[in-house]
Amino acid sequence: MEDLATVGTTVHQARRRRPPRSVGAPRAVVVVLGGILAAWALGACTATESCVSWADFPDDASRTEQATLVVDATVVEQAGTRSMFGDEANVWEVEVDAVLTGDVDPGERIEVVSTPPTCSSETYPEGDPLDVEGEVRLYLQDAASFQIPGSGTGWALITPFDGVGEVPEVP
């Protein structure tokens, strides 16, 4: 109790020495407005997130060129989550049906991280691209090749937007 009283007295004395304010906004209003502006400037990103600006791959050829592994695969089940770019990204087990580029075998099961778009209030605001049924074409690379802190390692979609495509129908 004695310490609290001493602190209270010290604070009280310091307040008396300040000159009175005659104009301008109260300090609390300035602090609150400053906080709101700072939050607005940061947008959805926080200090623990990486906000990634993703490349756009307009066609299958450009996605294939970017990927280390391109497979036609069937998503089996969600195998868990892991941290990626400050989000909890979904990890999926997929069964490889055909290999177009890369070093895996048909029939092999691999885990793939569904790369999150980042800087959103949700991990997958438009839905997880790997939460699908049926066969899909996956454009993958080792997450370490992103060379962004927090990307981790292991197979990941090349981007949240271009990592999953349709398997072309054979005529």
Rank of each mutant, 00 (worst) to 15 (best):
S121F: 11
P129W: 00
P160Q: 06
T68V: 05
A156T: 14
D97G: 05
C45N: 06
L140D: 05
F85K: 04
S50D: 05
R82V: 00
Q13V: 15
R27Q: 12
E77F: 00
E95D: 08
S114W: 03
V23G: 09
M84R: 02
E95W: 05
G43P: 01
D59E: 05
T9H: 06
M1L: 07
S22R: 15
T159K: 03
A143R: 12
R82L: 02
S22W: 14
T123F: 10
A143K: 13
S53A: 14
V132E: 13
I148D: 09
D97H: 05
A28R: 08
V7L: 08
R17M: 14
R82S: 10
V91C: 08
W40R: 09
T9I: 02
L37S: 14
V71C: 01
V99L: 04
W155A: 12
C119V: 04
P171N: 06
A144T: 11
I110A: 05
P149E: 15
V136E: 02
A144E: 12
D131Y: 06
D87Y: 15
Q147W: 02
G163T: 03
G154Y: 04
R63Q: 15
S145L: 06
E77R: 10
G150P: 06
E122L: 15
A89G: 06
L100W: 04
A38H: 03
A89H: 12
E126P: 00
S145R: 03
T6P: 00
E95A: 08
D72T: 15
I158K: 01
D97C: 00
G107C: 09
V75L: 12
S50C: 00
V164H: 13
V7K: 07
T118Y: 06
E126W: 04
S145V: 01
G24I: 10
E88Y: 02
A89R: 08
A38R: 07
A14V: 09
A44I: 00
E169S: 04
P20N: 13
V94G: 06
G80L: 10
F146H: 12
T64K: 02
V104A: 04
A39P: 01
A143V: 12
V11T: 03
R137V: 13
F85L: 15
T10A: 08
H12T: 15
A44P: 06
L100S: 08
G34W: 08
E95K: 07
T159S: 14
I36T: 15
D3A: 08
D142A: 10
E93F: 01
P168E: 13
T115M: 03
